[in-house]
Design a protein around this nucleic acid. Sequence first.
DNA 1: CCCTGATTCGC
DNA 2: GCGAATCAGG
Length: 207
Amino acid sequence: MSWTDERVETLKRMWSEGQSASQIAKELGGVTRNAVIGKVHRLGLSNRVGGAGGKEDEEEVVVEAPAPRVEAAKPAPAPEPAPRMTEQPRPAAPERPTPQPAAAAPVPSAPIPLRKAIVPAGQPLPPQPSANEISPEALASVREVEKRARKLTLMELTERTCKWPIGDPATEDFWFCGLPSQAGKPYCDAHVGVAFQPMSARRDRRR
DNA sequence: CCCTGATTCGC
DNA sequence: GCGAATCAGG
């Protein structure tokens, strides 16, 4: 396989969408993730811009002249802004975390009134997270990530795909996130963010 | 062990 | 230019 214009285009698109090199390689077929990464570098788009990892500032990506490579030059320390939280798993309800309505309220600080939700059978539901006790940042992150969800079906889930359900199980608009899950966790980063919260945060938000 | 991207270097 | 091997990290 060679890098036809079309394949390069797909590569560029997926890379800018934040897809991983291995996912791109799988999509393209006939190449390994190494090939993809190599190409990405040769194309000079190693610095992803359209990511989700919190906030990205629209910086002019000034690609400096290649400059004769100096060996031990490691310029960017890049401190992570995430003191986040010492996590405390929710007591229960990994199963049905807040079914997200297709259109969530645009304002993060005034979350979703929903909660009239349809409950098919008379099963006593486990304590569920109510949307209003999830941090706005986490909610925003989740909405962002759900656009990128792989929309897996139940059968497609593996030990390391995010199992966060999206949509209404009673309808066809239902799938699982499917993005890479955090090591040892059932969810991806964004969904871990809403599934697990520090006790203090929960109390503080309590009304 | 699963995964990620980054780098090197023979081809 | 290409990408396997390797490195470094989560």
